[in-house]
Design a protein around this nucleic acid. Structure first.
Length: 581
DNA sequence: GCCGTTTTCGGCCCGACTGTTTTCAGTCG
């Protein structure tokens, strides 16, 4: 059992309890517990072994006992009883927009609906419209919602979502009366995947903007529209909300819509303690006097806080840190000096080494690693040993041309084979300047086997960096079933570094394990895994993971001074501890 | 169910929007 699996159990309990009609605060408590387990640095089982479960915020006696029962017996009687009471098919119904626990319960108890297909059938047969509070429009909305659900399928990865959002942002900024507009919501927080798109705009007379949005040819459907908010469905079933306030209230609006929900709850609680009320329009004092904020920084300052970068707004202690002026000095793009995991035409990249070098120099990179695939089975264009010698001539040529501006390292993304051995012999690996070891094949092996493969690579004296450790692909493919406690313990001992793979389809390590690794002193690199010059621009996604994990620049070796970074690479693995940039 | 530098009991954020209603409940972020 990993943390995610525990979290899913408690989310499931919360959903079922809501449908059952349990008091809302109990379900909130289970959700909060699930969220805190998810973002835990370290495994829940490990914390249980130390007897410290109730030290986790949001976990008290009752939930701690349930965790123990799951660990001891592999099941949870409380959940089993809930699942006997409430049909689990109702959980799918909650995914339909505008259907929450109350309506799900209504459909179940008064129309016998227990699954999504049954709901669709009941709507089409005219059963739902006869229920209290339901009518013709509800019928239409539910059917449209079910259709959208079938089309949408999945969440969006960041690159897809930013692509859509930025096109709309540009269009909105060009509309008359719009003084300012920004992306908000989970996308502004750079959450790994997002479910919808939020855009906020400063505009005094929003009616014209709302009308033009509603009639825009690329809008598939208007889900709802009001004076200051409109909700739209885009092609592909993606939903987008556009929020407006006059310019002098833009700061509170941007803060409010950026979330997260939990961050906003904590912020409002803090405001209340100070005698204020906070919403998207203003901060209001106890006598009803409004304070208006055009800029978001001023909202935080008015509450006695440092401005908190959106990536940290998940209610994981950032508000307290902002009070104490102890927020992490988050990593910035212009601090990134190294790009160690890239591909060239020598394997499956589309650009030559020289083109990649020029691309790196243009982006301020000082240390560049050519890490073409090794010759392993199943990897397109993997390099044979003799090719490595040929490639070296091209690297030497590039060094002679660009050596003054950039250090060029001869490297390999070495395949960790299904049996746990590496593709090249030790002599070759020792000769290379940088070795990134990655799993690509047999990712569905049982947990102990695939963990063992990764441990072999971590222990290997010439492996410098573990590339995209879990092998997950966003938004669909889950990562390998790794025992993270073993993996990170071994990594902390070995002197190996982990990569944050910046490709928005990977973002691997994920933010939770990055945080955990960094806390254990394991060095982190951010690499794009670029297969073309254009893909060097993906770095920004990797930086967002480091920020969400709360890393300081010193913990990210990609920000180190080149001479220190090169010294780290040259140092034998077991002597690397204690070096810093 | 959790939590406490206003509380170990009594709270737990706040408002917009919608649809179906004659004043409100449900959903959402």
């Amino acid at each position: 059992m990993n943390n995610e699996q525990f979290a899913e159990i408690f989310d499931r309990i919360a959903d079922l309890m809501e449908i059952k009609g349990e008091v809302i605060y109990k379900t909130l408590a289970y959700r909060k517990a699930a969220e805190n387990i998810r973002s835990l640095p370290g495994s829940l089982i490990g914390i249980h072994q130390q007897g410290k479960l109730t030290e986790i915020p949001g976990i008290g006696k009752a939930i701690a006992e349930k965790i123990e029962e799951i660990i001891d017996t592999g099941k949870l009687g409380f959940l089993q009883r809930l699942e006997e009471e409430v049909p689990v098919g109702l959980l799918d119904i909650l995914q339909v927009p505008d259907i929450g626990p109350k309506k799900a319960a209504l459909f179940w108890k008064q129309a016998g609906v227990t699954s999504l297909p049954e709901l669709e059938k009941a709507v089409r047969e005219g059963v739902i419209r006869t229920l209290p509070g339901m009518g013709e429009k509800s019928e239409t909305r539910i059917l449209a919602g079910i259709e959208a659900l079938k089309r949408r399928g999945n969440r969006l990865n960041l690159e897809t979502a930013f692509g859509i959002a930025n096109r709309w942002l540009e269009w909105i900024r060009q509309q008359p009366g719009v003084e300012q507009a920004e992306v908000a919501g989970s996308l502004r927080r750079w959450k790994t995947t997002v479910g919808d798109i939020d855009i906020v705009a400063a505009v005094r007379e929003p009616a014209e903007l709302m009308d033009k949005l509603a009639t825009h040819p690329d809008i598939r459907r208007v889900l709802g529209t009001g004076e200051n908010k409109t909700s739209l469905e885009l092609p592909g079933g993606v939903s987008m909300q556009v929020w407006t306030q006059p310019p002098e209230r833009f700061g509170t609006l941007l803060q409010f819509v950026s979330g997260s929900r939990d961050h906003n709850v904590s912020l409002r609680t803090l405001a209340q303690k100070k005698g204020f009320s906070l919403n998207e329009r203003a901060i209001t004092d106890s006598e009803g006097r409004e304070m208006l904020f055009a800029r978001e920084e001023e909202v935080y300052r008015a509450l006695g806080l440092d401005w908190i970068p959106p990536e940290l707004r998940e209610d994981r202690g950032e508000i307290k840190a902002a009070q104490d002026h102890s927020l992490p000095r988050w990593v910035k793009m212009d601090q990134i000096k190294a790009e160690l995991h890239t591909h060239s035409t020598w394997s499956d990249g589309v650009n030559t080494i020289e083109e990649m070098v020029r691309g790196c120099i243009e982006r301020g990179i000082k240390v560049y690693g050519v890490c073409d695939h090794s010759g392993g089975l199943g990897i397109a264009g993997g390099m044979k040993l003799e090719d490595l010698r040929e490639r070296q001539k091209e690297i030497e040529l590039a060094r002679s041309k660009f050596g003054r501006d950039i250090d060029i390292l001869s490297g390999s993304e070495i395949e960790i084979r299904a049996d746990g051995t590496l593709d090249y012999d030790d002599e070759t690996l020792a000769w290379l300047d940088v070795v990134v070891a990655s799993l690509h094949i047999s990712l569905r092996q049982p947990g102990d086997i695939i963990t063992g493969r990764l441990l072999n690579a971590i222990r290997h004296p010439h492996v410098d960096i573990i590339g995209h450790a879990s092998g997950r692909l966003l938004p669909n493919r889950e990562g390998a079933d790794l025992n993270w406690d073993l993996v990170l313990d071994e990594a902390a001992r070995s002197g190996v570094a982990f990569e944050i793979n910046a490709n928005p389809a990977r973002l691997d390590l994920d933010e939770v394990h990055v945080r955990q690794a960094a806390d254990m002193g394991i060095p982190i690199f951010i690499n794009t895994d670029a297969h073309s010059v254009d893909q060097l621009d993906l770095m920004v996604y990797g930086v967002s993971v480091a920020r969400r994990a709360g890393l300081e620049p010193g913990q990210v070796l990609s920000t180190w001074e080149p001479k220190n970074l090169l010294a780290w690479l040259k140092t034998p693995k077991h002597e690397r501890k204690g070096l810093n940039g």
